[in-house]
Computed example of a mutant assay.
Amino acid sequence: MLTQLLNLIFGSKNDREIKALMPIVQRINALEAGLTPLSEQALADKTQEFKKRLAAGETLDDLLPEAFAVCREMSRRKLNMRHFDVQLIGGMILHKGRIAEMKTGEGKTLVATLPVYLNALEGKGVHVVTVNDYLARRDAEWMGKLYKFLGLSVGVIIHEKSDPERRQAYHCDITYGTNNEFGFDYLRDNMKFQLAQCVQRGHNFAIVDEVDSILIDEARTPLIISGPSEESTDKYYRIDKLIPRLVREEDFKVDEKARSVVLQESGIEKAEKFLGVDNLYDPRHMDLVHHIQQALKAHTLFTRDKDYMVKDGQVIIVDEFTG
Protein backbone atom coordinates (compact mmCIF):
# COMPACT_ATOMS: atom_id res chain seq x y z
CA MET A 1 0.00 0.00 0.00
CA LEU A 2 2.83 2.38 0.98
CA THR A 3 4.73 1.49 -2.22
CA GLN A 4 1.68 2.30 -4.36
CA LEU A 5 1.26 5.62 -2.54
CA LEU A 6 4.94 6.54 -3.06
CA ASN A 7 4.69 5.60 -6.73
CA LEU A 8 1.71 7.90 -7.12
CA ILE A 9 3.63 10.79 -5.54
CA PHE A 10 7.13 10.29 -6.90
CA GLY A 11 6.55 7.86 -9.78
CA SER A 12 8.07 4.38 -10.17
CA LYS A 13 11.82 3.84 -10.59
CA ASN A 14 11.20 3.29 -14.31
CA ASP A 15 9.26 6.58 -14.55
CA ARG A 16 12.05 8.47 -12.76
CA GLU A 17 14.75 7.04 -15.04
CA ILE A 18 12.81 7.94 -18.19
CA LYS A 19 12.16 11.43 -16.79
CA ALA A 20 15.92 11.87 -16.23
CA LEU A 21 16.54 11.13 -19.93
CA MET A 22 13.99 13.63 -21.23
CA PRO A 23 16.41 16.63 -21.23
CA ILE A 24 18.70 14.68 -23.60
CA VAL A 25 15.71 13.84 -25.81
CA GLN A 26 14.90 17.56 -25.94
CA ARG A 27 18.51 18.36 -26.92
CA ILE A 28 18.34 15.80 -29.75
CA ASN A 29 15.04 17.24 -30.98
CA ALA A 30 16.47 20.77 -30.85
CA LEU A 31 19.30 19.75 -33.21
CA GLU A 32 16.90 18.50 -35.89
CA ALA A 33 16.20 21.93 -37.42
CA GLY A 34 19.92 22.54 -37.98
CA LEU A 35 20.46 19.16 -39.69
CA THR A 36 17.49 19.21 -42.06
CA PRO A 37 18.98 21.79 -44.49
CA LEU A 38 22.32 19.90 -44.75
CA SER A 39 23.18 17.98 -47.92
CA GLU A 40 23.60 14.22 -47.69
CA GLN A 41 27.37 14.58 -48.05
CA ALA A 42 27.52 17.16 -45.26
CA LEU A 43 25.44 14.86 -43.07
CA ALA A 44 27.70 11.88 -43.84
CA ASP A 45 30.78 14.00 -43.08
CA LYS A 46 29.53 14.29 -39.51
CA THR A 47 30.83 10.75 -38.92
CA GLN A 48 34.43 11.77 -39.56
CA GLU A 49 33.90 14.89 -37.45
CA PHE A 50 32.69 12.75 -34.53
CA LYS A 51 35.68 10.41 -34.89
CA LYS A 52 38.11 13.35 -34.74
CA ARG A 53 36.40 14.69 -31.64
CA LEU A 54 36.68 11.28 -29.98
CA ALA A 55 40.38 11.20 -30.81
CA ALA A 56 40.71 14.69 -29.28
CA GLY A 57 39.38 13.45 -25.94
CA GLU A 58 35.60 13.74 -26.06
CA THR A 59 33.56 10.75 -24.90
CA LEU A 60 30.71 8.87 -26.53
CA ASP A 61 28.33 10.37 -23.97
CA ASP A 62 29.47 13.85 -25.04
CA LEU A 63 28.63 13.01 -28.66
CA LEU A 64 25.39 11.14 -27.96
CA PRO A 65 22.85 13.94 -28.65
CA GLU A 66 24.49 14.98 -31.92
CA ALA A 67 25.18 11.42 -33.09
CA PHE A 68 21.60 10.34 -32.37
CA ALA A 69 20.28 13.40 -34.21
CA VAL A 70 22.48 12.70 -37.27
CA CYS A 71 21.48 9.02 -37.31
CA ARG A 72 17.79 9.95 -37.07
CA GLU A 73 18.04 12.50 -39.89
CA MET A 74 19.81 10.05 -42.22
CA SER A 75 17.26 7.35 -41.34
CA ARG A 76 14.45 9.74 -42.24
CA ARG A 77 16.02 10.36 -45.63
CA LYS A 78 17.18 6.87 -46.58
CA LEU A 79 14.76 4.55 -44.78
CA ASN A 80 11.78 6.92 -44.60
CA MET A 81 11.68 6.19 -40.85
CA ARG A 82 12.13 8.85 -38.19
CA HIS A 83 12.90 7.81 -34.62
CA PHE A 84 10.22 8.80 -32.12
CA ASP A 85 11.07 10.06 -28.63
CA VAL A 86 10.41 6.63 -27.09
CA GLN A 87 12.91 5.14 -29.54
CA LEU A 88 15.51 7.75 -28.59
CA ILE A 89 15.03 6.73 -24.95
CA GLY A 90 15.38 3.05 -25.88
CA GLY A 91 18.60 3.83 -27.73
CA MET A 92 20.06 5.60 -24.70
CA ILE A 93 19.16 2.67 -22.44
CA LEU A 94 20.89 0.23 -24.80
CA HIS A 95 23.97 2.48 -25.00
CA LYS A 96 24.25 2.22 -21.21
CA GLY A 97 24.43 -1.58 -21.54
CA ARG A 98 21.01 -2.17 -20.06
CA ILE A 99 17.88 -4.00 -21.21
CA ALA A 100 15.14 -2.06 -23.00
CA GLU A 101 11.76 -3.79 -23.14
CA MET A 102 9.66 -2.60 -26.04
CA LYS A 103 6.26 -3.69 -27.30
CA THR A 104 5.72 -5.29 -30.68
CA GLY A 105 5.55 -2.60 -33.34
CA GLU A 106 7.60 -0.02 -31.44
CA GLY A 107 10.50 -0.50 -33.85
CA LYS A 108 13.21 -2.37 -31.94
CA THR A 109 15.31 -2.78 -35.07
CA LEU A 110 15.29 0.97 -35.67
CA VAL A 111 16.02 1.69 -32.00
CA ALA A 112 19.23 -0.36 -32.20
CA THR A 113 20.62 1.83 -35.01
CA LEU A 114 21.20 4.70 -32.56
CA PRO A 115 23.59 3.02 -30.07
CA VAL A 116 25.10 0.93 -32.87
CA TYR A 117 26.04 4.04 -34.85
CA LEU A 118 27.31 5.86 -31.75
CA ASN A 119 29.53 3.01 -30.55
CA ALA A 120 30.78 2.19 -34.05
CA LEU A 121 32.41 5.64 -34.12
CA GLU A 122 35.23 4.31 -31.94
CA GLY A 123 36.30 1.97 -34.75
CA LYS A 124 36.58 -1.00 -32.39
CA GLY A 125 33.64 -2.93 -33.87
CA VAL A 126 30.02 -3.41 -32.84
CA HIS A 127 28.21 -6.77 -32.88
CA VAL A 128 24.45 -7.02 -33.41
CA VAL A 129 23.30 -10.43 -32.18
CA THR A 130 20.10 -11.91 -33.65
CA VAL A 131 18.30 -15.24 -33.16
CA ASN A 132 18.69 -16.67 -36.67
CA ASP A 133 20.54 -16.27 -39.98
CA TYR A 134 17.48 -14.84 -41.74
CA LEU A 135 17.21 -11.89 -39.32
CA ALA A 136 20.97 -11.31 -39.38
CA ARG A 137 20.97 -11.16 -43.19
CA ARG A 138 17.76 -9.08 -43.34
CA ASP A 139 18.81 -6.49 -40.77
CA ALA A 140 22.33 -6.18 -42.18
CA GLU A 141 20.86 -5.42 -45.60
CA TRP A 142 18.00 -3.24 -44.34
CA MET A 143 19.81 -1.13 -41.74
CA GLY A 144 23.10 -1.46 -43.58
CA LYS A 145 21.88 1.17 -46.05
CA LEU A 146 21.73 3.69 -43.23
CA TYR A 147 25.19 2.88 -41.86
CA LYS A 148 26.83 2.89 -45.30
CA PHE A 149 25.41 6.33 -46.13
CA LEU A 150 26.93 7.49 -42.84
CA GLY A 151 30.33 6.16 -43.94
CA LEU A 152 30.45 2.95 -41.87
CA SER A 153 31.13 -0.59 -43.11
CA VAL A 154 28.73 -3.48 -42.42
CA GLY A 155 29.39 -7.23 -42.36
CA VAL A 156 27.26 -10.29 -41.68
CA ILE A 157 28.24 -13.70 -40.29
CA ILE A 158 26.20 -16.64 -41.59
CA HIS A 159 26.82 -20.36 -41.43
CA GLU A 160 28.28 -20.98 -44.90
CA LYS A 161 31.00 -18.29 -44.75
CA SER A 162 34.68 -19.24 -44.88
CA ASP A 163 37.33 -18.03 -42.42
CA PRO A 164 38.63 -15.24 -44.71
CA GLU A 165 35.05 -14.02 -45.26
CA ARG A 166 34.36 -14.12 -41.53
CA ARG A 167 37.56 -12.23 -40.77
CA GLN A 168 36.56 -9.53 -43.24
CA ALA A 169 33.06 -9.27 -41.72
CA TYR A 170 34.44 -9.01 -38.17
CA HIS A 171 36.74 -6.17 -39.21
CA CYS A 172 33.80 -4.10 -40.41
CA ASP A 173 32.54 -1.29 -38.18
CA ILE A 174 29.29 -3.22 -37.58
CA THR A 175 28.83 -6.99 -37.73
CA TYR A 176 25.49 -8.84 -37.72
CA GLY A 177 25.20 -12.52 -36.80
CA THR A 178 23.56 -15.10 -34.56
CA ASN A 179 24.65 -15.92 -31.02
CA ASN A 180 25.73 -19.39 -32.17
CA GLU A 181 27.94 -18.04 -34.95
CA PHE A 182 29.60 -15.51 -32.66
CA GLY A 183 30.02 -18.13 -29.94
CA PHE A 184 31.47 -20.86 -32.15
CA ASP A 185 33.84 -18.41 -33.86
CA TYR A 186 35.11 -17.45 -30.40
CA LEU A 187 35.65 -21.13 -29.49
CA ARG A 188 37.36 -21.90 -32.79
CA ASP A 189 39.62 -18.87 -32.40
CA ASN A 190 40.74 -20.22 -29.03
CA MET A 191 41.84 -23.43 -30.76
CA LYS A 192 43.98 -21.60 -33.35
CA PHE A 193 47.78 -21.77 -33.08
CA GLN A 194 48.49 -18.24 -34.36
CA LEU A 195 46.74 -14.92 -33.79
CA ALA A 196 46.79 -14.29 -37.53
CA GLN A 197 44.50 -17.31 -38.00
CA CYS A 198 41.79 -15.88 -35.71
CA VAL A 199 38.72 -14.37 -37.35
CA GLN A 200 37.44 -12.20 -34.48
CA ARG A 201 39.06 -9.09 -33.08
CA GLY A 202 38.50 -7.52 -29.65
CA HIS A 203 34.99 -7.50 -28.17
CA ASN A 204 33.88 -3.91 -27.71
CA PHE A 205 30.09 -3.40 -27.77
CA ALA A 206 27.14 -5.62 -28.62
CA ILE A 207 23.38 -5.25 -29.00
CA VAL A 208 21.45 -8.47 -28.29
CA ASP A 209 18.03 -8.83 -29.90
CA GLU A 210 15.50 -11.06 -28.09
CA VAL A 211 17.80 -11.00 -25.06
CA ASP A 212 15.51 -13.23 -22.96
CA SER A 213 15.66 -15.99 -25.57
CA ILE A 214 19.41 -15.77 -26.19
CA LEU A 215 20.70 -15.25 -22.64
CA ILE A 216 18.14 -17.38 -20.78
CA ASP A 217 16.40 -19.96 -22.98
CA GLU A 218 19.20 -20.79 -25.41
CA ALA A 219 21.88 -20.38 -22.73
CA ARG A 220 20.74 -23.75 -21.33
CA THR A 221 22.33 -25.39 -24.38
CA PRO A 222 26.13 -25.10 -24.24
CA LEU A 223 28.20 -24.50 -27.36
CA ILE A 224 30.46 -27.53 -27.81
CA ILE A 225 33.01 -28.18 -30.53
CA SER A 226 33.63 -31.87 -31.16
CA GLY A 227 36.67 -33.44 -32.73
CA PRO A 228 37.69 -36.87 -34.03
CA SER A 229 38.12 -39.49 -31.34
CA GLU A 230 41.49 -41.19 -31.02
CA GLU A 231 40.20 -44.22 -29.14
CA SER A 232 38.67 -47.41 -30.50
CA THR A 233 34.94 -47.41 -31.30
CA ASP A 234 34.56 -50.88 -29.72
CA LYS A 235 33.85 -49.20 -26.39
CA TYR A 236 30.80 -47.44 -27.86
CA TYR A 237 29.37 -50.72 -29.17
CA ARG A 238 29.91 -52.47 -25.82
CA ILE A 239 28.17 -49.71 -23.87
CA ASP A 240 25.35 -49.55 -26.42
CA LYS A 241 24.69 -53.27 -25.74
CA LEU A 242 24.66 -52.55 -21.99
CA ILE A 243 21.91 -49.91 -22.09
CA PRO A 244 18.96 -52.25 -22.97
CA ARG A 245 19.88 -54.35 -19.89
CA LEU A 246 19.25 -51.38 -17.57
CA VAL A 247 15.73 -50.75 -16.28
CA ARG A 248 14.41 -47.22 -16.00
CA GLU A 249 13.58 -46.04 -12.43
CA GLU A 250 15.27 -49.18 -11.07
CA ASP A 251 18.79 -48.95 -12.52
CA PHE A 252 18.72 -45.28 -13.49
CA LYS A 253 16.51 -42.23 -13.08
CA VAL A 254 15.71 -39.61 -15.74
CA ASP A 255 15.11 -35.92 -15.10
CA GLU A 256 13.50 -34.76 -18.35
CA LYS A 257 13.31 -31.12 -17.27
CA ALA A 258 17.05 -30.92 -16.54
CA ARG A 259 17.74 -33.39 -19.39
CA SER A 260 19.95 -35.51 -17.18
CA VAL A 261 20.30 -39.18 -16.25
CA VAL A 262 21.55 -40.57 -12.92
CA LEU A 263 22.75 -44.17 -12.43
CA GLN A 264 21.43 -46.02 -9.35
CA GLU A 265 23.30 -48.61 -7.26
CA SER A 266 21.74 -51.54 -9.11
CA GLY A 267 22.63 -49.98 -12.45
CA ILE A 268 26.23 -49.46 -11.35
CA GLU A 269 26.48 -53.14 -10.31
CA LYS A 270 25.06 -54.33 -13.65
CA ALA A 271 27.45 -52.07 -15.56
CA GLU A 272 30.48 -53.27 -13.59
CA LYS A 273 29.55 -56.90 -14.16
CA PHE A 274 28.83 -56.43 -17.88
CA LEU A 275 32.00 -54.41 -18.55
CA GLY A 276 34.22 -56.56 -16.31
CA VAL A 277 35.45 -53.83 -13.95
CA ASP A 278 35.67 -53.91 -10.15
CA ASN A 279 34.87 -50.26 -9.47
CA LEU A 280 33.15 -48.18 -12.15
CA TYR A 281 34.06 -44.96 -10.32
CA ASP A 282 37.76 -45.73 -10.08
CA PRO A 283 39.65 -42.81 -11.75
CA ARG A 284 40.90 -45.26 -14.41
CA HIS A 285 37.30 -45.91 -15.52
CA MET A 286 35.80 -42.41 -15.39
CA ASP A 287 35.56 -42.37 -19.18
CA LEU A 288 33.25 -45.40 -18.93
CA VAL A 289 30.94 -43.49 -16.57
CA HIS A 290 30.83 -40.60 -19.04
CA HIS A 291 30.02 -42.89 -21.98
CA ILE A 292 27.29 -44.71 -20.02
CA GLN A 293 25.69 -41.40 -19.03
CA GLN A 294 25.76 -40.16 -22.62
CA ALA A 295 24.40 -43.43 -23.98
CA LEU A 296 21.52 -43.38 -21.48
CA LYS A 297 20.69 -39.80 -22.49
CA ALA A 298 20.79 -40.74 -26.17
CA HIS A 299 18.42 -43.67 -25.59
CA THR A 300 15.97 -41.93 -23.23
CA LEU A 301 16.02 -38.19 -23.95
CA PHE A 302 16.75 -37.88 -27.68
CA THR A 303 14.31 -38.82 -30.45
CA ARG A 304 15.45 -39.39 -34.02
CA ASP A 305 14.17 -36.81 -36.56
CA LYS A 306 13.19 -34.54 -33.66
CA ASP A 307 16.35 -33.97 -31.60
CA TYR A 308 18.77 -35.28 -34.21
CA MET A 309 18.95 -36.57 -37.79
CA VAL A 310 21.14 -39.13 -39.51
CA LYS A 311 22.27 -37.85 -42.90
CA ASP A 312 24.95 -39.36 -45.13
CA GLY A 313 26.20 -41.50 -42.26
CA GLN A 314 26.55 -38.52 -39.91
CA VAL A 315 24.54 -37.55 -36.83
CA ILE A 316 23.28 -33.95 -37.04
CA ILE A 317 21.94 -32.35 -33.84
CA VAL A 318 18.77 -30.27 -34.33
CA ASP A 319 18.76 -26.92 -32.53
CA GLU A 320 15.52 -26.87 -30.52
CA PHE A 321 15.26 -23.07 -30.80
CA THR A 322 16.06 -22.44 -34.46
CA GLY A 323 15.37 -25.84 -36.03
Score class of each variant (00 low, 15 high):
12 S>D: 08
107 G>F: 03
160 E>M: 04
38 L>S: 02
64 L>Q: 04
312 D>F: 10
285 H>Q: 14
43 L>F: 05
56 A>S: 14
58 E>T: 09
109 T>G: 04
112 A>L: 10
158 I>Y: 07
140 A>K: 05
292 I>F: 06
308 Y>R: 04
106 E>L: 10
308 Y>F: 15
34 G>H: 13
221 T>F: 01
196 A>L: 12
255 D>L: 11
44 A>K: 08
256 E>Y: 15
315 V>D: 01
188 R>P: 00
61 D>T: 11
108 K>P: 00
244 P>I: 08
77 R>I: 05
122 E>T: 14
247 V>G: 02
241 K>D: 14
109 T>E: 07
278 D>P: 01
245 R>P: 00
156 V>N: 00
109 T>Y: 04
134 Y>W: 08
7 N>A: 04
37 P>C: 07
111 V>D: 00
24 I>S: 06
248 R>V: 11
305 D>L: 03
195 L>W: 14
231 E>P: 01
253 K>F: 05
72 R>Y: 12
76 R>D: 11
65 P>S: 07
52 K>R: 14
301 L>F: 05
55 A>L: 13
86 V>R: 10
95 H>T: 05
320 E>P: 05
237 Y>T: 14
286 M>Y: 15
68 F>S: 02
280 L>V: 08
177 G>Y: 02
209 D>R: 06
116 V>N: 01
238 R>I: 08
62 D>I: 10
104 T>K: 11
192 K>D: 04
88 L>F: 10
66 E>M: 15
73 E>R: 10
197 Q>I: 09
89 I>L: 10
257 K>F: 15
177 G>F: 01
62 D>H: 08
79 L>Q: 12
54 L>G: 06
104 T>F: 12
297 K>Y: 02
156 V>P: 02
134 Y>I: 08
91 G>L: 08
197 Q>S: 14
180 N>L: 04
293 Q>C: 05
227 G>R: 13
148 K>I: 06
98 R>K: 13
81 M>R: 13
181 E>N: 08
86 V>Q: 05
44 A>V: 07
257 K>C: 01
175 T>K: 04
234 D>I: 13
130 T>K: 05
154 V>F: 06
134 Y>Q: 07
37 P>I: 09
191 M>W: 07
223 L>C: 12
290 H>K: 15
229 S>H: 14
35 L>R: 03
295 A>K: 13
186 Y>H: 10
194 Q>F: 14
62 D>K: 09
215 L>C: 13
235 K>D: 00
243 I>D: 02
172 C>H: 11
199 V>N: 02
253 K>A: 14
235 K>G: 00
157 I>W: 00
166 R>I: 04
185 D>M: 01
4 Q>E: 11
300 T>N: 14
199 V>T: 11
175 T>I: 07
89 I>K: 03
139 D>Y: 06
25 V>W: 09
212 D>H: 11
161 K>C: 00
6 L>K: 13
308 Y>W: 05
103 K>C: 03
21 L>M: 15
187 L>H: 10
51 K>E: 10
220 R>E: 14
257 K>N: 12
45 D>P: 02
101 E>Q: 13
41 Q>G: 07
4 Q>R: 13
105 G>C: 06
272 E>P: 02
312 D>Q: 09
198 C>Y: 03
214 I>E: 00
134 Y>G: 07
175 T>G: 00
